[in-house]
Amino acid sequence: MSPSLLPWFLVVQRLGIALLTLVIVSFAVFFATELLPGDVAEILLGQAATPEAVAGLRAAMGLDEPALSRFVGWLVGLAQGDLGTSYVNNMEVVELIAGRLGNSLRLAGVTTLLSVPVALSLGIGAAMYRGSLFDRMVSVLTISVISVPEFMVATLAVLIFAVWLDWLPALSYGADVSSIGAMLKAYAMPVITLSCVISAQMIRMTRAAVIETLNTPYVEMALLKGASRRRMVLIHALPNALGPIANAVALSVSYLVGGVIIVETIFNYPGVAKLMVDAVSTRDLPLIQSCAMIFCVSYLSLITLADLIAILSNPRLR
């Protein structure tokens, strides 16, 4: 294989793996929700249902078909954008989600735009001035944040900004979003909370990645050429730490998925995660499956993207 083709081969291979993973994940999601519970028809009709009514409903829902064929049907439906019908209110799942997806994406997008640059500069800065007061402060802060559950960060934020300072509303839902100021206020709390949660990991991993490359012989060589600390980090260490850093960013941004579930619940934010938590409490399986798939797909794409960056930033493969 010619050297110039090798990275593209790896890219295609990585995409193939992602696709395969997606199939396995959807398999897991489908069977975790479909096969484990007693019987959907019984749940829907309640305990008082007659066996005839249950059997009728099962037939109507196609539950008496073999599991595998239902799985394939479900997958094909997914691919065509048919997410099924909610058990609870008989609405199309697509419609239920469509209204919420934008909200969640906006929350995630704003958070990412805010936290990635901040976290990267803090991580690189901490590595550049390793052992300094700045570095130690960053270390203590990040370790505190990653050590506590997301809801506690959120609770703390509510306590400080909404209760004590009374700057921001504690809830997002139904907040007045007519002016920009009001909208900023509505978003501020969830975004601050989520940013804290995902930045901490990113800072730690970025710092570790840069420090690892700072210990290589070629950085020592740069030192022996008279390079300044700044030059060693920015010119020599950083380009080689790109792969690990991309990985750190993707992994941290994928924490959004977990964080979003908690944050949307706490702030009563009308996003997909809130929808899913509600669906869990009503055991609305089609809705749960669809939400789960949305999260898994976004998680997978982020991780795959990071791997692709790592592959393409490796000079040996160029």
């Binding site: 012989p217 740069a222 022996l224 050429k225 380009p239 040996r316």
Partner: peptide, 23 residues
């Protein structure tokens, strides 16, 4: 740092490791 490279310079044991792979 001002002396390094101009007054005194260094040839490493393993050039393979001392060259930055990405430049």
């Amino acid at each position: 740092a001002r002396l390094r490279g101009t007054e005194v310079s260094y040839v490493p044991q393993s050039a393979a490791a001392a060259f930055n792979p990405s430049k």
